[in-house]
Design a protein around this nucleic acid. Sequence first.
DNA 1: TTATATAACTAACAGCGTTAGTCTGTCAAC
DNA 2: GTTGACAGACTAACGCTGTTAGTTATATAA
Lengths: 196, 196
Amino acid sequence: MAQKGISRETVLRKAIELIERNGTAALSMRELAEALEIRTPSLYNHVKSMGELYADISRYAAEELRQAQLAAIKGKSRDEALGALASAYRRFAKEHTGLYKVTVSLSDLRDDASGQAAAAIAEPIFLALSKYGLDEEQMIHWQRILRSIIHGFLTQEEAGFFRHYPASVEVSYQMALRCFLSGLHAEIEGGQYEGQ
Amino acid sequence: MAQKGISRETVLRKAIELIERNGTAALSMRELAEALEIRTPSLYNHVKSMGELYADISRYAAEELRQAQLAAIKGKSRDEALGALASAYRRFAKEHTGLYKVTVSLSDLRDDASGQAAAAIAEPIFLALSKYGLDEEQMIHWQRILRSIIHGFLTQEEAGFFRHYPASVEVSYQMALRCFLSGLHAEIEGGQYEGQ
DNA sequence: TTATATAACTAACAGCGTTAGTCTGTCAAC
DNA sequence: GTTGACAGACTAACGCTGTTAGTTATATAA
């Protein structure tokens, strides 16, 4: 019955901790309450609903991923920056599997929150692409393409799709990035993608 | 109490129907039973568990996606085949959103089933890539890269990541494919990806 | 006609997120 | 120092989820 010094912050931190330790599936109101040494309904004194909590976690995760990318491209430019960004992105997904999954499942967030999170994740890529002298529309296209490659790769790697074939996953990832860079350079130099 | 002519087949078909109509989230044992005009526990006379049912649906969805790809590349070769495959893949994901999502979440299947499904989806890409004269390891790499692009793109499009920026999603997709093809041709002609 | 297997049923359990209503410990005001 | 109010804990309960056990009725084979 005594006040236990639990706040919205505390709950959020503990939820993140549980996700980091045991994965997304292990996060339930019951587990969360137990970890905080509280009865389940008491959580609702600090958090409106599971969905809202998830939105908070998602915001946090997006910000972490953004910071990881920003740190990676800092002081670097163009191809070097993009390479570092891609590596940092993959490292983040591997080291924070649970958080990355939350980042991915933005679909069921309210539109404003989802937009914010999406922008936070996309920003570093725009930053790195800005050194190539593309116009705004082309930047959007190439940002989408790079994110597709990176995210698609990581999703499938996580899902175990790459386990069934005997070829280095790391090499595949490097090749994918070089494929992107060669396409990007072809656009800039040859302009072969224009008029579409 | 009368026998109602329900079989494992019937249940599977109805489950797929529900997913197609109302999305993955709408599939529950209760809804499924109701649609079949049966009490929920009666389902267990035909299906062992929700997980097993999901595995069956997943197998079905993977086969459908495989057929869509095979039909697309039939009679075509190389770049034309890959273009058609990519378009068919996206069309499938758009027209069968629920089924495609099931296809994606193979991760929690048993390993053998997941391997089968993954192979079914990957096969058409291998088929289309086989006309480029790549060795086996390179085929695996390029298959992974193409799947990453396609799947990553579709996942993010579905999640609404592309809604926030004013540029044609269709054009982005076409550019992504051309990016892949130019990278692939650079590999074949220049051999610039060797020795990695 | 009888026996057996199939497939329906009801009742129940443990888990989930969530709400309503209650009690209590802490802090501010008089 | 006593009182009042609020924050934060509680218990009890609801409807949902998947699932199991045990029972009953029907259809088919002997």
